[in-house]
Amino acid sequence: MSPRALSLLALHLHDGEHALVRDVSLTIRRGKVLGLVGTSGGGKSLTTLAILDLLPPGVKRVAGLVALDSQPVEPATLRGRIVGLVQQAPRGGFNPLVSIGRHFLETLACDGLRGAPAWEKMQGLLAEVGFERPAEIASLYPSQLSGGMLQRVMLALALARDPLFLLADEPTTDLDLVVQARLLDLLEALVQRRGIGLLLVTHDLSVIARLADTVAVMDQGRIVELQSAHNLFEDPAHPRAQALVAAHRALYA
Protein backbone atom coordinates (compact mmCIF):
# COMPACT_ATOMS: atom_id res chain seq x y z
CA MET A 1 0.00 0.00 0.00
CA SER A 2 1.28 3.44 -0.78
CA PRO A 3 2.13 5.64 2.20
CA ARG A 4 -0.46 8.10 3.50
CA ALA A 5 1.69 10.44 5.54
CA LEU A 6 5.16 11.97 5.44
CA SER A 7 6.46 13.20 8.76
CA LEU A 8 9.37 15.19 10.01
CA LEU A 9 10.07 14.57 13.67
CA ALA A 10 11.95 16.80 16.10
CA LEU A 11 14.24 18.43 13.56
CA HIS A 12 17.14 20.47 14.92
CA LEU A 13 19.46 22.33 12.55
CA HIS A 14 22.66 24.07 13.50
CA ASP A 15 25.27 26.12 11.65
CA GLY A 16 28.09 25.44 14.09
CA GLU A 17 27.41 28.58 16.10
CA HIS A 18 23.65 28.99 16.32
CA ALA A 19 20.60 26.80 16.24
CA LEU A 20 18.73 27.58 13.00
CA VAL A 21 15.76 25.25 13.44
CA ARG A 22 14.62 23.96 16.81
CA ASP A 23 12.43 20.96 17.49
CA VAL A 24 10.29 21.20 14.38
CA SER A 25 7.80 18.42 13.66
CA LEU A 26 5.38 18.40 10.72
CA THR A 27 3.11 15.85 9.11
CA ILE A 28 2.06 16.08 5.48
CA ARG A 29 -0.97 13.93 4.68
CA ARG A 30 -1.98 12.64 1.26
CA GLY A 31 -4.89 14.59 -0.17
CA LYS A 32 -4.23 17.52 2.18
CA VAL A 33 -2.41 20.81 2.06
CA LEU A 34 -0.17 21.90 4.91
CA GLY A 35 0.74 25.58 4.69
CA LEU A 36 4.03 26.82 6.16
CA VAL A 37 4.28 30.57 6.70
CA GLY A 38 6.38 32.88 8.83
CA THR A 39 9.02 35.51 9.18
CA SER A 40 11.71 35.74 6.51
CA GLY A 41 14.76 33.89 7.81
CA GLY A 42 12.58 31.88 10.17
CA GLY A 43 13.71 28.51 8.82
CA LYS A 44 11.01 27.49 6.34
CA SER A 45 13.31 26.66 3.45
CA LEU A 46 15.87 24.80 5.57
CA THR A 47 13.08 22.73 7.13
CA THR A 48 11.77 21.87 3.67
CA LEU A 49 15.21 20.91 2.36
CA ALA A 50 15.91 18.77 5.44
CA ILE A 51 13.01 16.48 4.51
CA LEU A 52 15.03 15.38 1.46
CA ASP A 53 18.46 15.70 3.03
CA LEU A 54 19.33 18.56 0.68
CA LEU A 55 20.71 20.96 3.28
CA PRO A 56 23.24 23.50 2.00
CA PRO A 57 26.85 23.29 3.15
CA GLY A 58 27.28 24.84 6.58
CA VAL A 59 23.98 23.56 7.93
CA LYS A 60 23.94 20.37 9.99
CA ARG A 61 21.07 18.22 11.07
CA VAL A 62 21.85 17.56 14.73
CA ALA A 63 18.62 15.71 15.37
CA GLY A 64 15.48 14.74 13.54
CA LEU A 65 13.86 11.92 11.70
CA VAL A 66 11.87 11.54 8.50
CA ALA A 67 9.15 8.89 8.40
CA LEU A 68 6.60 7.48 5.98
CA ASP A 69 3.53 6.29 7.89
CA SER A 70 5.68 6.42 11.04
CA GLN A 71 8.36 4.14 9.54
CA PRO A 72 11.71 5.96 9.63
CA VAL A 73 13.22 6.32 6.16
CA GLU A 74 16.48 7.54 4.65
CA PRO A 75 15.50 11.04 3.41
CA ALA A 76 17.65 10.98 0.26
CA THR A 77 15.77 7.92 -1.04
CA LEU A 78 12.52 9.89 -1.18
CA ARG A 79 13.72 12.33 -3.85
CA GLY A 80 11.82 12.42 -7.10
CA ARG A 81 9.64 9.35 -7.08
CA ILE A 82 8.05 9.75 -3.64
CA VAL A 83 8.61 13.43 -2.93
CA GLY A 84 8.85 16.17 -5.56
CA LEU A 85 10.51 19.50 -4.74
CA VAL A 86 10.00 23.03 -6.03
CA GLN A 87 12.85 25.17 -4.69
CA GLN A 88 12.56 28.79 -3.71
CA ALA A 89 15.13 30.13 -6.17
CA PRO A 90 14.20 28.47 -9.43
CA ARG A 91 17.30 29.49 -11.39
CA GLY A 92 19.61 27.58 -9.06
CA GLY A 93 17.77 24.34 -9.76
CA PHE A 94 18.70 24.29 -13.44
CA ASN A 95 21.88 23.57 -15.33
CA PRO A 96 22.39 26.69 -17.48
CA LEU A 97 24.10 24.68 -20.23
CA VAL A 98 21.26 22.22 -20.73
CA SER A 99 18.02 22.97 -22.60
CA ILE A 100 14.70 22.75 -20.79
CA GLY A 101 13.75 19.73 -22.92
CA ARG A 102 16.84 17.82 -21.87
CA HIS A 103 16.13 18.53 -18.21
CA PHE A 104 12.84 16.70 -18.69
CA LEU A 105 14.22 13.84 -20.74
CA GLU A 106 16.89 13.14 -18.13
CA THR A 107 14.34 13.19 -15.33
CA LEU A 108 11.87 10.99 -17.17
CA ALA A 109 14.62 8.52 -18.07
CA CYS A 110 14.91 7.76 -14.34
CA ASP A 111 11.65 5.85 -14.72
CA GLY A 112 12.66 4.32 -18.05
CA LEU A 113 10.58 6.70 -20.11
CA ARG A 114 12.37 7.59 -23.38
CA GLY A 115 11.75 8.67 -26.95
CA ALA A 116 8.30 9.65 -28.13
CA PRO A 117 6.43 8.75 -24.93
CA ALA A 118 8.87 10.87 -22.90
CA TRP A 119 8.49 13.74 -25.33
CA GLU A 120 4.72 13.49 -25.10
CA LYS A 121 4.74 13.39 -21.33
CA MET A 122 6.95 16.50 -21.23
CA GLN A 123 4.61 18.39 -23.52
CA GLY A 124 1.66 17.41 -21.33
CA LEU A 125 3.45 18.58 -18.17
CA LEU A 126 4.45 21.91 -19.72
CA ALA A 127 0.90 22.46 -20.96
CA GLU A 128 -0.42 21.67 -17.50
CA VAL A 129 1.60 24.50 -15.95
CA GLY A 130 0.25 26.95 -18.48
CA PHE A 131 2.55 27.00 -21.52
CA GLU A 132 0.58 27.33 -24.70
CA ARG A 133 3.42 26.18 -26.97
CA PRO A 134 5.33 23.57 -24.95
CA ALA A 135 7.61 22.54 -27.81
CA GLU A 136 9.05 26.07 -28.05
CA ILE A 137 9.83 26.15 -24.33
CA ALA A 138 11.59 22.80 -24.53
CA SER A 139 14.13 24.15 -27.01
CA LEU A 140 15.10 27.11 -24.79
CA TYR A 141 17.87 27.40 -22.19
CA PRO A 142 17.20 28.50 -18.60
CA SER A 143 18.72 31.97 -19.17
CA GLN A 144 16.22 32.56 -21.96
CA LEU A 145 13.19 32.25 -19.72
CA SER A 146 11.67 34.93 -17.50
CA GLY A 147 11.46 34.35 -13.74
CA GLY A 148 7.83 33.29 -13.84
CA MET A 149 8.41 30.92 -16.74
CA LEU A 150 11.23 29.15 -14.89
CA GLN A 151 9.12 28.76 -11.80
CA ARG A 152 6.46 26.93 -13.80
CA VAL A 153 9.03 24.71 -15.52
CA MET A 154 10.35 23.81 -12.07
CA LEU A 155 6.90 22.70 -10.96
CA ALA A 156 6.40 20.67 -14.13
CA LEU A 157 9.74 18.94 -13.50
CA ALA A 158 8.83 18.19 -9.90
CA LEU A 159 5.64 16.52 -11.12
CA ALA A 160 7.38 14.55 -13.88
CA ARG A 161 7.79 11.40 -11.80
CA ASP A 162 4.25 11.44 -10.37
CA PRO A 163 5.34 11.90 -6.75
CA LEU A 164 3.04 11.11 -3.84
CA PHE A 165 4.09 14.24 -1.96
CA LEU A 166 5.13 17.66 -3.18
CA LEU A 167 7.22 20.19 -1.27
CA ALA A 168 6.68 23.60 -2.85
CA ASP A 169 8.77 26.52 -1.52
CA GLU A 170 7.21 29.80 -2.68
CA PRO A 171 5.96 28.16 -5.89
CA THR A 172 3.97 31.16 -7.09
CA THR A 173 5.93 34.24 -5.92
CA ASP A 174 7.24 35.11 -9.37
CA LEU A 175 3.98 34.49 -11.19
CA ASP A 176 1.43 36.98 -12.38
CA LEU A 177 -1.95 36.62 -10.73
CA VAL A 178 -3.58 34.95 -13.71
CA VAL A 179 -0.96 32.22 -13.94
CA GLN A 180 -0.89 31.95 -10.16
CA ALA A 181 -4.63 31.29 -10.08
CA ARG A 182 -4.20 28.64 -12.74
CA LEU A 183 -1.35 26.93 -10.91
CA LEU A 184 -3.27 26.94 -7.66
CA ASP A 185 -6.16 25.26 -9.49
CA LEU A 186 -3.69 22.69 -10.78
CA LEU A 187 -2.26 22.06 -7.31
CA GLU A 188 -5.77 21.72 -5.90
CA ALA A 189 -6.62 19.18 -8.59
CA LEU A 190 -3.44 17.19 -7.86
CA VAL A 191 -4.32 17.11 -4.19
CA GLN A 192 -7.99 16.28 -4.59
CA ARG A 193 -7.92 13.94 -7.59
CA ARG A 194 -4.50 12.32 -7.41
CA GLY A 195 -4.26 12.52 -3.63
CA ILE A 196 -0.90 14.25 -3.52
CA GLY A 197 0.15 15.51 -0.08
CA LEU A 198 1.31 19.11 -0.42
CA LEU A 199 3.62 21.20 1.75
CA LEU A 200 3.03 24.77 0.62
CA VAL A 201 5.60 27.31 1.79
CA THR A 202 4.51 30.84 1.04
CA HIS A 203 4.51 34.31 2.51
CA ASP A 204 1.24 35.14 0.78
CA LEU A 205 -1.70 34.47 3.05
CA SER A 206 -4.15 34.72 0.18
CA VAL A 207 -2.48 31.62 -1.30
CA ILE A 208 -2.90 29.95 2.10
CA ALA A 209 -6.54 31.03 2.19
CA ARG A 210 -7.08 29.56 -1.25
CA LEU A 211 -5.48 26.17 -0.67
CA ALA A 212 -4.33 25.19 2.81
CA ASP A 213 -6.20 22.90 5.18
CA THR A 214 -3.78 23.35 8.07
CA VAL A 215 -1.15 26.03 8.64
CA ALA A 216 2.09 26.08 10.60
CA VAL A 217 3.57 29.46 11.50
CA MET A 218 7.34 29.56 11.93
CA ASP A 219 9.40 32.18 13.70
CA GLN A 220 13.09 32.12 14.64
CA GLY A 221 13.44 28.43 13.92
CA ARG A 222 10.38 27.23 15.79
CA ILE A 223 6.81 26.43 14.96
CA VAL A 224 4.85 28.88 17.06
CA GLU A 225 1.37 28.02 15.86
CA LEU A 226 -0.30 25.07 14.15
CA GLN A 227 -3.98 25.15 13.39
CA SER A 228 -6.63 24.92 10.71
CA ALA A 229 -6.48 27.60 8.03
CA HIS A 230 -9.94 28.72 9.00
CA ASN A 231 -8.96 29.29 12.62
CA LEU A 232 -5.70 31.00 11.73
CA PHE A 233 -7.59 33.71 9.89
CA GLU A 234 -10.42 33.96 12.42
CA ASP A 235 -8.47 33.67 15.63
CA PRO A 236 -4.66 33.72 15.39
CA ALA A 237 -3.16 32.97 18.79
CA HIS A 238 0.58 33.74 18.70
CA PRO A 239 1.61 37.42 18.36
CA ARG A 240 3.58 36.57 15.17
CA ALA A 241 0.53 34.93 13.63
CA GLN A 242 -1.60 37.87 14.65
CA ALA A 243 0.83 40.31 13.02
CA LEU A 244 0.90 38.28 9.78
CA VAL A 245 -2.86 38.14 9.55
CA ALA A 246 -3.10 41.87 10.30
CA ALA A 247 -0.55 42.71 7.55
CA HIS A 248 -2.51 40.51 5.15
CA ARG A 249 -5.79 42.22 6.03
CA ALA A 250 -4.18 45.62 5.43
CA LEU A 251 -3.53 44.67 1.77
CA TYR A 252 -7.26 44.47 1.26
CA ALA A 253 -8.24 47.56 3.27
Partner: peptide, 9 residues
Protein backbone atom coordinates in the same frame (compact mmCIF):
# COMPACT_ATOMS: atom_id res chain seq x y z
CA UNK B 1 7.51 39.57 -3.57
CA UNK B 2 9.50 37.10 -1.58
CA UNK B 3 9.24 38.97 1.73
CA UNK B 4 6.89 38.01 4.50
CA UNK B 5 4.00 40.43 4.83
CA UNK B 6 5.24 42.30 7.89
CA UNK B 7 8.65 42.88 6.35
CA UNK B 8 7.06 43.75 3.04
CA UNK B 9 4.95 46.45 4.70
Amino acid sequence: NSLDLETQA
